[in-house]
């Protein structure tokens, strides 16, 4: 009886239905918590790129703290296109950078977040997205108000090798970017290169990659080139580079 085809079909069908019901119930029940986590992680990343929300590990009510800091420092946000024109009616926070990254450059919605510090100085934060070795790499880059000098960066990844590629999300790697410039003296866009340590001298457009994390480093390099490149028109407009 147990090995009859009918029994096997019924058994398999029942099993699949039960499993599907359990999993979809759990997924639906947990979704609000997961969405909140994702929203908070995004806000925290944006804040960390301008060195805010740094006491997040110490506070009791983590989410309230992040919300408070976000309200306080992130004063504006808008979406532009690759020509540097502001797009009306789109909430920058809701833009899914992963989806945008799949589109051709001229169709992308490009979010910008504006942070204003207590002393009134402003930073412009843009999300970046690319591919590492095993999966996506992403992050936020904060620029100073010259739209050229990097104020700070935050990188993260989905599945880079711990200890190797995963090191891109450590302060040791991220802090190298502070003060680097994406335009050269002639005003040409040069991005920031992630180089193999020791091969060429570092300058204001280069940072050291990670030994053993070359492919992830190349991914970061390509991500910066691609994403920053799509903002160039807007940055140019804003800073009015003099070419004389």
């Amino acid at each position: 009886m147990k090995d009859s085809n009918t029994y096997i079909f019924l058994y398999a069908s029942a099993m699949v239905i039960v499993v599907a019901a359990v999993l979809s119930t759990v997924a639906t029940l947990l979704k609000p918590y997961q969405d909140l986590n994702i929203e908070m992680a995004k806000k925290l990343d944006i804040l960390r790129s301008v060195e805010k929300a740094e006491r997040v590990a110490e506070v009791d009510d983590r989410n309230a703290y992040i919300d408070g800091e976000y309200e306080r420092y992130i004063v504006d946000s808008y979406v532009i296109n690759h020509l540097g024109e502001v797009q009306e009616g789109i909430d920058a926070f809701e833009v899914n950078v992963r989806e945008e990254n799949r589109k051709p450059v001229d169709q992308r919605n490009l979010p910008i977040f504006v942070a204003r510090d207590d002393d009134g100085s402003e930073n412009f934060i843009i999300p970046v997205y690319g591919r590492g070795l095993w999966g996506p790499v992403f992050g936020y880059i904060a620029f100073e108000d010259d739209y050229n000098t990097i104020f700070g960066v935050i990188f993260d990844h989905e599945g880079e090798t711990p200890g190797l590629g995963a090191e891109i999300s450590t302060p040791a790697f991220e802090n190298q970017f502070k003060g680097k410039k994406i335009f050269d003296d002639a005003g040409e866009f040069v991005s920031i290169d992630v180089i193999k340590p020791g091969t060429v001298p570092l300058n204001e457009h280069r940072v050291d990659g990670i030994s053993g994390g070359t492919i992830t480093g190349n991914g970061v390099d390509a991500m910066l080139e691609d994403t920053l490149g799509s903002y160039v028109a807007y940055f140019r407009k804003q800073k009015n580079v003099n070419h004389e």
Partner: peptide, 19 residues
């Protein structure tokens, strides 16, 4: 199930473990 629970309640750890 484990993955979903980690994502809901231990988000940072789940991001680290990922795949």
């Amino acid at each position: 199930l484990v993955d979903q629970v980690l994502k809901a309640f231990f988000y940072d750890v789940s991001r680290q473990l990922s795949v």
